[in-house]
Design a protein around this nucleic acid. Structure first.
Lengths: 186, 186
DNA sequence: CACGTCATGTAAGTTGTTACATGATTTG
DNA sequence: CAAATCATGTAACAACTTACATGACGTG
């Protein structure tokens, strides 16, 4: 048996408001997508499973004349399942896979100028991500003190600050490491 | 077509020295396992594929009287394939999945005392990991200056420092966030 | 009216996990 | 001699990706 994380991620998203498969797909392109995501093809299949497990119910909302939005709502069973899952501490943490670092492990086989190009590429991607996350933070929380943040927004606050912290640390490490590369003869 | 990352990870590991499937499994339990890993069941299958693609060759080494170690060695084709893969910059970065943060996003549905327990659990796991990584660093590099590290060890150096940096940042964020949780009434 | 987005789904293939299966070697 | 580790493999299942497939709606 797998850990059924997508199942619970969807239940969690539906706990905020009713959503269509399309809406859920969109959520995974926002901040929470920094920590979990799935493609629409997987989401539609999972929604069917959740329906058959009676954890969610479905109703149709019309978007215009003919375009159907299949909306999904947590059942009380679904809410219970979510609440139970949330409080279980995870004993193991999965490998946070990172192909760039994997490649660096084999740096011996990369020509020096190519190493610098790889670093610059990562630096650009990570910096852009960091800038985007900081902008999001500004827009949502501005200069608000964490103790004054609305309870409804607290989850969002933690996800954003964690993502920002992760990228800040990544960029810093990239800068330091590139300095070392540049100074070394190898 | 997938990105065949395990394929290239194995080619990379074999570029250092000949290894058995068991050895490779072991490597993924060491530092590089912080950034990529696979189970033995997947590794044996991948080795077969690499053999059929002529990227590696196989020979038998005896370990005792009857116990066979099937050793694998990069072919020149395999080395070429590795070197080509290493220099291609990755334009997209995959989601670094983290179930703890996913759960936190739904903090609204977690009782306050359980939140603290979840945080403490993560703190313990991450701190232990950090301590282990720092110990590894000390053992391998001691007080050595990064500019004096042997070229053969440079990949190892970057992987270790990145892992340490990641966990330091994680632990720091956990501490700050737990403080906020404790101070808030919610 | 073309293009981008909204909206849902299936099919085929790849990757990854857990469990099943077996036997040898080493160490206390 | 028991338990841990060494060593290799297969089977079944679960998770994930890419491509295929279709059609509606809104805006310039």
């Amino acid at each position: 048996m797998g850990k059924r994380i997508l199942k619970h991620a969807i239940l969690g998203l539906l706990s905020k408001k009713d959503m269509s498969g399309y809406d859920i797909t969109g959520e995974f392109k926002e901040e929470i997508g920094q920590f979990w995501s799935a493609k629409h093809s997987q989401i539609y299949i999972e929604l069917k499973k959740l329906l058959s497990e009676n954890l969610i119910s479905q109703y149709i909302e019309m978007s215009g004349e003919k375009l159907e939005r299949k909306m999904h709502r947590l059942t009380s069973e679904g809410k219970k399942e979510l609440e139970q899952w949330l409080v279980v501490p995870d004993e193991t943490i999965e490998t946070e896979k990172d192909v760039f670092i994997l490649k660096l492990y084999f740096i011996k086989h990369i020509p020096k100028d190519k190493v610098e190009a790889l670093f610059r590429n990562q630096f650009n991607i990570r910096s852009a991500k960091l800038a985007y996350l900081r902008e999001q933070y500004q827009q949502i929380f501005g200069e608000q003190h964490p103790l004054e943040i609305d309870a409804d927004q607290l989850g969002h606050y933690f996800v954003l600050t964690k993502a920002i912290s992760r990228e800040e640390s990544y960029v810093k490490w990239l800068e330091q490491s590139l300095e070392i590369i540049k100074k070394r003869e190898y």
